[in-house]
């Protein structure tokens, strides 16, 4: 799928950047003229992916989180959130609803939310090398545009 536009953002794994990341994704997605519900879905999925990187990838240190935002052909928004942290030993287990290794403020529903709110979700990870989460969402073309 051809890339029609893209930006790359890199920020440290500070929780204050969760709000920045979802706001940036919403601003970038605005060029596809999404509905409010589509924007909210994108913000929610980005918040989950970035929070996972911040909470789990770098448990005892600050690290770098990269977020790539792309508009692909056919009105598809692609979001790639990548870290170079500890990685996930068992991705299938991590994607199980209610599974978490985080603190009490985590519900274990992050991947479930990403799956529910986006069209596709891919998770690639290797222990010691980091995790890459790729999500896509087709934004409906609205009549009259």
């Amino acid at each position: 799928m051809k890339v029609e536009n893209q930006v790359t953002l890199e920020f440290p794994s500070r929780s204050a950047n969760e709000g920045f990341a979802r706001a940036a994704a919403a601003c970038f997605a605005a060029q596809l003229d999404p509905t409010l519900e589509e924007i909210n879905d994108i913000k929610t999925a980005v918040s989950e992916a970035v929070t996972n990187a911040i909470v789990h990838a770098y448990p005892d240190t600050l690290g770098s989180v990269t977020m790539k935002l792309r508009v692909r052909e056919d009105h598809v928004l692609e979001i790639v959130v990548k870290d170079r942290g500890v990685g996930i030993a068992d991705v299938e287990q991590a994607r199980t609803p209610l599974f978490t290794t985080g603190g009490e403020e985590r519900s274990g529903m992050g991947f479930t939310i990403m799956e529910s709110f986006m069209d596709t979700l891919k998770v690639r990870s290797a222990p010691g090398k980091g995790t890459t989460v790729t999500m896509r969402r087709k934004i409906a073309r609205r009549a009259g545009r």
């Binding site: 918040s47 985590r106 519900s107 274990g108």
Partner: peptide, 13 residues
């Protein structure tokens, strides 16, 4: 104005 799965954890607690 916004919540994610952290809101789920708050409600369950």
């Amino acid at each position: 104005t916004f919540t994610d799965s952290s809101g789920i954890a708050v409600l369950l607690r």
